[in-house]
């Protein structure tokens, strides 16, 4: 059974720009899906639709069989807790330390302080940032910031990890490190949706590849390559 189903999803912005056109596909639980395409192909828009940051103009998106359009606005934060998100610009909270940034994902869910004190160092250990817990985002490198973002995205054990161009601002070494972590997270059972336009990454993964072009799916290969 599929975890996420997109049924003829179309997104038209107020200026009549068609970002997505009749997108239909299914993503199963535990899959690793690469969403590829040139800039402006609609990758980020599609991801925003999945974690309900934007609503489709037409069509429907189902998560675990439930149409997410039926979720009231006030309950969307709870829906979003099914996801962990990682972005090109890291989106860390600048006034919080590394520890506090990661802990925030647990705090909003009302986890106990004891649980936070136990789990945050563990995940920071996994991403190799345990020794930098007290630093602020502006005191660490881009690669380190992305590892923190990844730790924050998965600490609450989401069902889906959404990574939108996570290596876009990183050097090759940091890129390898992030991809290795994404694969590890996927191996542990989390569904990963990776949006990228980095051909070398996609070709190395040997995972499912969905190619978008001008808002339409032009290819969907179960063990695909970029081209």
């Amino acid at each position: 059974m599929s975890l996420i189903t997109l049924d003829k999803v179309t997104k038209i912005y107020p200026d009549e720009f068609v970002a997505l056109e009749e997108i239909s596909c299914r993503i199963r639980e535990g899959e690793f899906v690469s969403l590829v395409g040139a800039s402006g192909a609609g990758k980020s828009t599609l991801l925003k639709m999945i974690y309900a940051n934007e609503r489709p103009t037409y069509g429907a998106i189902y998560f675990g069989g439930r149409d997410i359009a039926s979720i009231p606005e006030r309950l969307l934060p709870f829906y979003r807790r099914n996801f962990g998100t990682v972005f090109q610009d890291f989106k860390l909270l600048p006034k919080k330390t590394v520890f506090e940034n990661v802990a925030y994902a647990l705090e909003v869910q009302g986890k106990s302080n004891a649980q936070i004190r136990e789990e945050v160092p563990k995940i920071l250990e996994i991403v190799g940032m345990a020794d930098q817990m007290d630093k602020y985002p502006d005191q660490i490198s881009g690669g380190e910031a992305q590892r923190i973002a990844l730790a924050r995205a998965v600490i609450h054990r989401p069902r889906v990890l959404i990574a939108d161009e996570p290596t876009g601002n990183l050097d090759p070494v940091s890129t390898d490190e992030i991809i290795r972590l994404l694969l590890k997270i996927n191996e542990l059972g989390t569904t990963v949706i990776l949006a990228t336009h980095d051909q070398s990454i996609v070709d190395r993964l040997h995972k499912r590849v969905i190619v978008l072009n001008q808002g339409r799916i032009v290819r969907d290969d179960s063990q695909g390559r970029y081209n």
Binding site: Y51, R80, R81, K91, L93, K95, Y104, V108, R152
Partner: peptide, 16 residues
């Protein structure tokens, strides 16, 4: 303003 957006993405409710 950007922080509010991040907080919501991480799963914070509007009240939080």
């Amino acid at each position: 303003r950007k922080e509010f957006e991040i907080m919501r993405l991480v799963g914070a409710s509007n009240l939080y």
